[in-house]
């Protein structure tokens, strides 16, 4: 499927820092802020932990997008 198809559900892998972005995602939950369900968070202790190889690995394995947040 592609981006032109309205039913397309992208596979987005996010690396989220435990102390800010992951906590922020928790806060979004506490406030019941709604967002698309296509994103999957991988908790890392710090965005500095994200090795470029993880990003490449995700794309190689078929991820449509990678978000590194910290």
């Amino acid at each position: 499927m592609s981006i032109d198809n309205p039913n397309w559900e992208p596979k987005i892998v996010a690396f989220a820092c435990n102390w800010c972005s992951y906590a922020g995602a928790d806060l979004a939950g506490l406030n019941r802020l709604q967002y698309p369900a296509d994103i999957r968070l991988i908790r890392v202790p710090c965005s500095g932990r994200v090795d470029p190889q993880f990003v490449l690995r995700a794309f190689h394995q078929g991820a449509d997008g990678v978000l590194v947040s910290g």
Partner: peptide
Amino acid sequence: QIVAEVDALC
């Protein structure tokens, strides 16, 4: 561990 997570998601 992290690569295993990436693989599991993809």
